[in-house]
Design a protein around this nucleic acid. Sequence first.
DNA 1: TTTATTGTAACACATTTTATTACATTAATA
DNA 2: TATTAATGTAATAAAATGTGTTACAATAAA
Lengths: 136, 136
Amino acid sequence: MNNTRFATALHILTLLADSKEVWCSSEWIAGSINVNPVVVRRELGVLGAAGLVQTRKGKTGGATLAKRASDITMDKVYLAVKNSEVLGKRNHKTNAKCPIGKDINEKLDTLFTSIDQRVVTELSSKTLESFVAEFH
Amino acid sequence: MNNTRFATALHILTLLADSKEVWCSSEWIAGSINVNPVVVRRELGVLGAAGLVQTRKGKTGGATLAKRASDITMDKVYLAVKNSEVLGKRNHKTNAKCPIGKDINEKLDTLFTSIDQRVVTELSSKTLESFVAEFH
DNA sequence: TTTATTGTAACACATTTTATTACATTAATA
DNA sequence: TATTAATGTAATAAAATGTGTTACAATAAA
């Protein structure tokens, strides 16, 4: 991950969990993160698809959590936004005539997947609720 | 990590561990990975700085492992090439007037660091020797 | 009807990653 | 000594990814 998507998503969720306003607008959220509201709406769409937030259109529209903060674990956030593996990419055109080049991607798959899984497992023990509690 | 540096570095090390040639040229290594030899030489420089390989200039120059494959663990490879954290970047200009925006990067630091550390620990139990053995 | 919002497309700009060219330096060897 | 084949590294180009912005249709409250 060489982007701000996890940080942005968790920031959004933290605001929603902490806010007394039920429906938070993308503009208000964007003001806390200091990014463009469109970026927030895009990420809200992703978090909505993952079942973590709900959004409402129209005047008085906005976003709210779709579950209790104690039921939102960090692995769900991570899986919603991740678009690369922890150990990165493979080289795709490795030499099929070389014994190593021929099979390395298959071996890397196993390694990369196990490391990714370890991160997910670690994140699954951390809830949004306990993260938000750190701010008080 | 949204790049091929770990895959490239491990590919290089696997070739060096497996090769009967003592000094492998960057061009020969590049032929197995199917990348430009300059990319290989750059990564060899990084692996050399990490104490994992040795290189030699001049005709009959090339690269070789600096230690036994059983003494090279994956965490050393990862730390040599990593240039981003597992959970990505933070948003740098968060709103200091917002209770969440004000402190979130400090909280993210803790989380990001602990996840990175978990990955390193996991990789530290995997040796180059056992990775190479998978090819036989 | 007006107003404030989401959802999304389209495009612009910035950053990161990878490939390539060029060449000085090094060291073996004919 | 001259030739050859390698590393080391700078510079630049090209491709891929990430972020910001504008625009506007659709929605729903007042």
